Simulated scan of single mutants.
Amino acid sequence: MSGGPTGPVLAAGAVVWREQDGQPLVLLIHREHHNDVSFPKGKVDPGESVPTTAVREIEEETGYRVHLGAPLGTAEYVLPNGRDKVVHYWSARVSKKEFERAGAFAPNDEVASVEWVTIDDAHGRLTYDRDVEILTRFADRAAAGEHRTFALIALRHAKTVPGSDWDGPDATRPLLPVGRSQAKAVVSPVAAFGPKKIVSSTAARCLATVEPLSARTKVGVQATPDISQDAHDRGAANVKGVVRRRLDKEKSTVLCSHGPVLPDIIARIAGATADGSRHFDLRRAAMLSVGDFAVMHIADGRLVAVETHRNPVAS
């Protein structure tokens, strides 16, 4: 959420792009009241996650419904009132189907007009140097063929009744009330990355964690013991097989599992996609707290970026 009177103002947006004749075009917006040309973005509402803000603002300002690709970092600057502002950016692709659905742009209170331009043209059109820096990061990704990505999203189940307070089998432990709140709170930020598949441990706590996400996205849940804690403790888990199948499918997928299993999931993904030429914070991604998630962005079999997100509901 936005910082207090002395904290930074948080905002989020994206380099929105689509393909034409095999080349990426990027979307620029013109705001008359600022007399500038920039990327779609906006301030984080109270209680809202940064990824949720990005997709909401893009639709409000441009009419396009997008899912987030790989992160492009932040732009930081000082507002006229002296407060710092931090804008988080991702790439976000507009598919041909979505481009046709949205139709012609209708001016709104924020944006007077939009324009699809080449990356080279965008460099000369953007008003602010900070936006040019973000565009350059996207251009570098595009030049390397790493702008079209899919995501494997590792989600740790929400807060659960402790084993010491549960008489039944470990796999049947339910979520606590705070855990149910965490499961609801994680829906929008995870949905911002457009999962097409949800794979869950067979444990009740994992299935309950992804239930609200499944209902919101209308994506069914595939339950498997291969990433369950019971199988892990017996040495019978098949994390490698699950990860390999998801990588082969190249579809954004949620993998909901347990604290002891997640390091193996992260390591298997990285082992199959990272070539050692870039550093990623895999330790943080592997050591998620309950209800948190990590997003691993992959392009053409290569790991492009890793990001982690805290659950807004404290455990």
Rank of each mutant, 00 (worst) to 15 (best):
P312G: 04
A112F: 00
A267M: 05
Y64W: 06
D109P: 01
S200A: 15
K159G: 01
K96Y: 00
S38D: 12
T224C: 11
V114Y: 03
L262D: 01
A191I: 06
L176A: 12
A272W: 03
A142W: 11
P51E: 12
L126V: 02
R245G: 08
A14N: 05
G163W: 04
D121K: 10
V44A: 14
E250A: 14
R278V: 11
V306M: 03
K249G: 12
S164T: 10
T172V: 06
L175P: 01
Q222V: 11
R101K: 14
P162N: 07
V219G: 11
D300Y: 12
A231M: 10
E61M: 10
A122T: 08
A75P: 01
V9I: 15
D140Q: 14
R268A: 15
F105E: 08
D131C: 01
I269V: 14
D129F: 05
V219K: 10
A142Q: 14
P80S: 11
N238F: 00
D131Y: 13
P8H: 10
V254E: 01
I58H: 11
T149E: 02
L10N: 05
M296I: 07
L262E: 03
S228F: 03
D226I: 02
V242S: 01
L135K: 03
A104G: 01
V210N: 04
I29R: 02
K41S: 13
D167M: 05
V94E: 04
P46H: 10
Y89I: 03
Y77H: 13
L68F: 10
D275M: 08
L213Y: 02
L79V: 05
E98W: 05
D281A: 13
A75H: 01
D292Q: 09
Q20D: 12
G271C: 03
P169S: 07
H279A: 11
R18S: 12
P40M: 06
A270L: 06
T273A: 09
A11I: 05
A223M: 09
S257C: 11
D167E: 13
I134N: 00
G291T: 10
P162E: 08
V254A: 06
L10H: 09
V221L: 04
E110Q: 11
P71E: 11
D121M: 04
H258W: 06
